[in-house]
Structures are given as C-alpha cells and as structure tokens.
Design a protein around this nucleic acid. Structure first.
Lengths: 211, 211
DNA sequence: TTATTTTTTAAACAAGTGTTTAAATCAGGT
DNA sequence: ACCTGATTTAAACACTTGTTTAAAAAATAA
C-alpha cells in the first residue's frame, strides 16, 4: 500500500482545475504537470479521466451529503413528533448549513463547491451524469421534505419554485468569492454567514409567496 | 452578394449545437457537416470559431436587449413622472417578458435562451467574455433600476439578492422544457406564461423580503 | 539476499482540434 | 465571349487530446 501521495495529489489538483477551467477544458498533461506526477498515473490509479471526476466529486460529496441528510432527518423527526409541519426555514438551513460550513473550511473546499454549483446545468454529458448519480438522491429527499412543508402549493408551482431555488443556490455556490479566479457573473463581497442568512430569507420568502 | 445561405445555415446550426453540447464541445467538423456546408466556410465567413460564437449571440441578443431596454425605460419614466418609486414587479416584467416571448417564438429561440442561461456561470473564458461583452451592459442598467426600486436595502444585501435572482432566472432559461435534449437538472412541465408569473412572484417576494 | 508485486516513467499511439492553403467553381459586369 | 471578384472545396498543417505500452524503478515479502 504505497503512494497515497499520487492519488491525493491528483484528486486535489483535479478538484481545483475542474472547478476553475471546467472538466473538458482541463488537460491531463496540465493536470499531471501541476500535480507533479507522471501523465500515465491518472489512468493507472483511476482508469480514466472520467473516473477521476467521479472520484473527485464522490470524495467530498459523500460526507457532505451525510451531514445534510442527518440534519434533514432531525427536522422531519421533530416536526412529526410535535405533530406539526416541518418549517421551510429549518429544512433550508439543514440543507445549506453544511454546504456553507464546508465552503469556509478551505480554499480547496471552496473550489469544490463551485464545481458542484456549476454542475447543476452543465451541458457536458460526463459531468452531468456524474452529478445526477452522486447528488440527485439526496436532493430528491430534500425536495420531498420541502414538499411536505408546503402542502398547499400546487404541484407544478412547487416544482417551478424548486427550480428557482436550485438556480439561486447554484449561483451562490458558483461564486467562489475570495477563492480562485473562477468565473462568476456577480461576486458578492459578503461574509459567508451573512450571505447564507440572506439566501435563507430570500428562498423562504419566495417559496412561501402567495400562489 | 451571394450566399446569404451559408452564413445563416452556420449561425442556426451553431446556435443549436452550442446550446446542446456547449461551445468547446462542439466541433467545427460536426457543425459544418450538420449545416451541410464546407468545413472552411466558418473561417471564411466568420474568421474563427470564437467569432462565430459572438455572431450567434449578437444576432439574437441585440434585438432582445433593445426590447428589454425600452420596457425598463418606460417603467422608469412613468415612475419618475408620478413621483413614485418604480415597482419591482414592473421592472421584473419588463426584463423577463421579452425573454419568455422570444423563447416561445421558435425552438431555435428556445435553444438560444438556454445557451444564454448557461453562459452566466460558464467556466469557459471564451463564452464568459463574450457574454460579459454582449449581455452585461443591459443587465447593469436593469440592476440599477432595481436598486432604485429597493432604496431601503443595504447595498451588500441588494447585491446578494441580485445574485440569487440571476441564479433563478438562468435556471429557468437553461430549462429548455419541450425543446431539445439539453441538460437541465429539473424540467418543469409548466406552460411558459404561468412559469413566468411564478418566477415573478418568487423573485418579487424574495427581493422584498424583510432584511 | 532473492523474488514478486506495485508504482513510475518516457515514448508512442490513434484520433480529434481549429485553421490555412491553393486550386476549382460560381457569380456578375463589360 | 472574357475577365474579375466572391465563394466553395478537398487537402494538408500544426497541434492537442486521452490512453496504452513496455521497460525501469521502487516497495514489499520471504
């Protein structure tokens, strides 16, 4: 069991470059050069460029989604125990809080989040499929929780508002603020806690708007 | 002055493929083959692939932005004449209504809108620069109008909410619904008029939420 | 130590990229 | 008819892509 180095170097560097340049625009030669490893090591350790993408996303998303799931389950359990509807704000917080906390933990984490943010609507099949596979299950649970919190909304209206919500969240995630030089259309110089609070208020107001 | 055909064939086909596959992932060989023209005609008529992208976006965005500008100016003028603040809802409508109307006009237009929707946060420098150049001026005017309609919002909070708004709008634009096979994370089977109304309500509620 | 497996390395591979070239074709004017 | 400028065409160019190969090196086990 040697070389935990090479694999980690590749994952870290891929995470950064995929976020900054996009998946297809990242060349394995640049990637391996920047990671300080040999070109062939990507295929040796991961099999293919595509598998590397999966590994990059899975490494971060697995623990992150576990936290989000736990938070959501707590909200749902508490609401059920009290015999009331789950609160929209609590659900949003359970979903977003781990994301923002993770974002703050390191610039690498920040890179990853902007990579994920962009994946929601990536035209590239590879990225999109990977994202669907790894992120969709938890998101569907999240949306089913929200649905229960908003039982009076027409189903189509609910789906539409869910789309708006996804857009807002991904816009924030794409904005890597003080991070790297990734391209976000608008960069808001607001500290992360305050930005999350504002996002919560914005989304709650939007979701609960009169139909 | 022959061959208005070739240029138009290229523009139409590029619009479709750029939207479906992304700019970098669209090869000039596939593009020209699908358009039924010679490979070299792209460079002959447009100079480069990048220039083709500019031409594709400019062709549609110029008239679209003209309509949006006129609508916004009307709202601002009326508000000024009445000595009241411009209404958030009126501004949103002036910005969004031409977009939705255009989207409905043809499947080609639909393709274009999803291309634009994706460009807001495209990691690709070429696409991003093109988008900044062609779409930013009007957007900045739009945001300055919104700012005047929401004078009591803290500046940073306003910027954050603007980012959320951009996210929601681009999510809707990316969703080419009944159109092509572009990848949108969530596709909402709501007719366009109703979806625009819902987007308006969602955004207005979010923008005017208590700070 | 030797033997064996794992990892690294440089080179080559096959295919794809946008662009350029120069000859061929087509159009309109005289 | 001829000439002229615009357009199309097939081929080549120079370069990049992800991946594979086989030999060298390093690590592990006996």
């Amino acid at each position: 069991m040697a070389s935990p180095d090479t694999k980690k170097l590749l994952l870290d560097c891929a995470e950064k470059l995929f976020a900054q340049e996009g998946f297809h625009h990242t060349s394995m030669r640049v990637l391996t050069e920047q990671a300080g490893v040999n070109l062939a090591s990507v295929n040796y350790h991961f099999g293919s460029k595509e598998n590397l993408l999966y590994a990059v996303i899975e490494r971060r998303l697995k623990p992150l989604n576990k936290k989000r799931l736990r938070g959501l389950e707590v909200v749902m359990r508490n609401a059920a125990a009290s015999g009331v509807l789950p609160a929209v704000n609590d659900l949003l917080l359970a979903f977003l809080q781990p994301t923002f906390a993770f974002r703050l933990s390191s610039s690498a984490a920040n890179n990853f989040i902007s990579l994920i943010g962009r994946s929601w609507n990536d035209p590239d099949q590879t990225v999109h499929n990977c994202f669907i596979k790894l992120a969709m299950p938890l998101f569907q649970y999240f949306s089913s929780c929200l649905r229960q919190a908003l039982p009076n909304l027409d189903e189509l209206v609910f789906q539409a508002r869910l789309q708006f919500l996804v857009g807002s969240i991904s816009a924030v995630m794409c904005d890597s603020s003080s991070g790297c030089n990734a391209n976000s259309f608008i960069s808001v110089p607001l500290d992360e806690d305050e930005k999350m609070n504002q996002l919560l208020k914005f989304l709650q107001a939007g979701l609960e708007a009169p139909q």
